[in-house]
Design a binder for these strands. Structure first.
Lengths: 254, 254
DNA sequence: GACAATCTTTGATAAACGTCAACACAAAGG
DNA sequence: CCTTTGTGTTGACGTTTATCAAAGATTGTC
């Protein structure tokens, strides 16, 4: 499951001259920085490459940098003493993570981070970035927006865990993904190993498999390896909402 | 369970001349504002009083203000369609809440809020406060620190939910509270109704009761109404850690 | 102090999910 | 080509926790 612990940083790639600034600007956080600021961010950045399963950092480590994914995926997860792992979040290209610990007195990562597939990212020095933040209230605001979004997401996650059954969570996930990518003709591509997804949904792999099987039998979906065809959207939604949230006009994407 | 929906604001108390600024300064968020800024915050504040069970706001409502509790407690919770409620957080005096939604494009409260016991609070206008934030990077930083703390707490909450059994969660809670208030001679005061606490721990009241009963039989604790005497700290800790977190030197208070 | 309302406890029952173990299947590598 | 390793599936079984129902406790109120 885990490949090897690389000395806290994975293998360092040399910075690409090409399109660093354009890559940075993909991220909401850096999007509206001016050229001079982008230059400074670049200067404090390092490019890191990880192969599948490699650690980026472990929970409890001192947090001195934060990250932007440009390729592949990063899974943030926690471990129980018995070895159980729970995936908290899966970070896709264009998104930053670990930027919240910047503001802690003695910053430690609250989660473990490792790569899913071949992954590339930038890392940025916390204190240097903090320095820049001090000069730009605008960027502060952007960051705060980002954090408040994350807060909302986590709260949503907590409901899902407590108010929904495992079956409901899986149904909700499928329904959400189906809605997100209606373009692809009723087919959802799980671009993550099923085991990881199961953990993300807080379900054991065996149970996840069984639930998908059930849904198949109920003619709600049809599974072909890691792509899932949605047959009965209605039915799926019924399963998802049966334990879902009310008291709020929460957008489905939340 | 719920008293009555007051028109979005509870009953308005008239501002007390007395010690508003000193009360504000209790909160981390306002602590280091200068006198002029405190004045401005005061000007945008309203004092609100709620009696037990009264709504402050509901999930989905437009969020235009945020709050500081000065007396009593506020419970933030979510509702499932079947009426189940899950308490996300219990806010005690000196703490602010709902300040994160300020930064959302179209801010809506992600949770419901209602009072536990006689409760008093200040509310502050989002846009006015945002204006002030623009002028004070320092306050931005403080706010970001606050938010990142909340993020960490929520992540911790998610582990507790997924990596721990109900029994472990209760044990962990008791152990944490025992550690927090060692002064009080091995006795923990639950200053919240057991049902609310159960929800906070994501356990049904019945189950909560049974778990306490079990712990009693195992001579770990002794229950006297809403105060609990810890007899065997070790044993309690064993229960808590059996499914607890590793891979991190997470402080017990996290 | 007595009554009502609410909260808490207790018991019996059942469903959902996790665990353990074996097996299928695919991709990777000799 | 055949092993090997990782990953997903299936089955049998056990445990935990929710649910339903009802009886005690507490609290507040008149």
């Amino acid at each position: 499951m885990v490949d090897k612990l690389i000395d806290g940083a994975g293998c360092l790639l040399k910075p690409l001259e090409r399109s660093v600034s354009s890559e940075l600007k993909q991220s909401y956080l850096f999007a509206r920085l001016d050229e001079e600021q982008i230059q400074r961010v670049e200067a404090m950045s390092r490019r890191v490459g990880l192969s599948d399963g490699q650690y980026l950092f472990q929970a409890g480590e001192k947090a001195t940098r934060f990250y932007l994914v440009t390729q592949g995926q990063i899974k943030l997860y926690r471990l129980a003493l018995n070895g159980n792992e729970k995936v908290i979040e899966i970070i896709s290209p264009g998104h930053t993570f670990a930027e919240a610990s910047m503001f802690q007195e003695s910053p430690n990562f609250p989660v473990n981070a490792s790569a899913i597939g071949e992954t590339e990212l930038y890392s940025f020095d916390n204190s240097a970035f903090l320095g820049m933040l001090r000069e730009s209230v605008d960027t502060c605001f952007r960051l705060m927006g980002d954090m408040s979004q994350r807060l909302k997401r986590l709260i949503k996650e907590i409901d899902d865990l407590t108010l929904q059954s495992a079956t409901g969570r899986v149904a909700g996930f499928l329904w959400g993904r189906w809605n997100a990518g209606k373009a692809n003709g009723n087919t959802i591509e799980l671009n993550v190993p099923k085991g990881v997804l199961a953990s993300r949904l807080s379900v054991k792999p065996e149970t996840f498999s069984r639930i998908l099987h059930n849904f198949s039998e109920q003619k709600l979906i049809q599974v072909h390896g890691s792509s899932i065809e949605v047959i009965d959207e209605e039915g799926l939604y019924r399963h998802a909402e049966s334990a879902g949230i009310c008291g709020g006009s929460l957008s489905p994407d939340l």
